[in-house]
């Protein structure tokens, strides 16, 4: 029996996000939200391990109530239960405060063998949450995991593979452990229509909402108050100006291209 907790974030699809250069704010209105892509791979890994070793898969998300849509999707994929960790006091949390809140929620769930996160989110893209939560739970953490080779439930150990710049590393760890996984390590399954229906009919059975008091978090350590970092300003990223010399393919175009490469001292 493996008890696995997966952390997921409901994020605006960055491809659609617009930026208001006058106000200096991100325009999220009208932007579709999705489960952060690698988090789907995290769910898939959890479900595959459950199928192999038996057990339960829980999903948690710290978010405003709108994330319930994402949690329902996770349940429809086969997750046993989802927890929405939601409270006004959690607003404007940086990664440290988010990790603290998530670690309180994980402690409240109680026993677990494996906690899986996505490698990073498409909106904030820090990759902080996994390592920070591991630290706060007092258990080891490994990022960039591509495969769980084996779980030994008797010895309570796990064998993992991960990719770094210069090669592939094989790790063995005692359970419990926190890992982060990236997009592409597996193919996430689609939600099952019947489970989707069940989730809609019996939402309360599958999804539980926890506020600050429910997870016993210190109000000084959550949300804006608990965040050591401050965003001072956000500006539109300047794209370096380009020559934009665009031509239809032809012998002449190719000659001109080579001339430009010479001028730029590339050849």
């Amino acid at each position: 029996m493996l008890k696995i907790i997966v952390g997921i974030k409901w994020v605006p699809d960055t491809a659609d996000v617009k930026f208001d250069p006058v106000k200096g704010t991100i325009i999220r209105e009208g932007v579709e939200s999705i489960i952060n892509p690698p988090d789907l791979n995290a769910i898939e890994l959890a479900l595959a391990l459950k199928e192999k070793y038996g057990g339960e898969v829980y999903v948690i998300s710290m978010s405003p109530p709108s994330a319930i849509k994402g949690l329902k999707m996770a349940v429809a994929m086969g997750v046993d239960k989802a927890f929405l960790v939601s409270d006004r006091k959690f607003a404007a949390a940086d990664t440290l405060a988010t990790s603290y809140t998530l670690s309180c929620a994980i402690k409240k769930i109680g026993s677990y063998d494996l906690v899986i996160f996505g490698e990073e989110t498409i909106d904030s893209a820090t990759g902080h949450i996994g390592p920070e939560v591991g630290e706060m739970l007092g258990i080891p953490h490994l990022s960039y995991v591509t495969e769980v080779q084996e779980v030994d439930l008797q010895q309570r150990t796990i064998k993992m593979v991960r990719e770094v710049e210069d090669g592939v590393e094989f790790f063995q760890a005692n359970l419990p452990v926190v890992i982060s996984v990236g997009v592409g390590i597996n193919t996430p399954r689609y939600p099952i229509p019947l489970r989707r229906l069940l989730t809609e009919l019996e939402t309360n059975k599958y999804i539980e909402t926890w506020a600050l008091n429910d997870i016993g978090a210190d109000p000084e350590k959550v949300g804006f108050k608990g965040s050591p970092t401050r965003v001072v300003k956000v500006i539109a990223a300047p794209m370096p100006a380009r020559r934009l010399e665009i031509r239809e393919a032809s012998g002449e175009t190719v000659k001109l291209f080579i001339k430009r490469l010479k001028e730029a001292e590339i050849i």
């Binding site: 996000v17 930026f19 991100i26 904030s124 970092t229 965003v231 539109a236 990223a237």
Partner: peptide
């Protein structure tokens, strides 16, 4: 540069 590099965020850690 969060949001896929579309913006630049300026961040400080004033106290810690």
């Amino acid at each position: 540069p969060p949001f896929g590099g579309r913006v630049h965020a300026y961040i400080i850690t004033p106290e810690k």
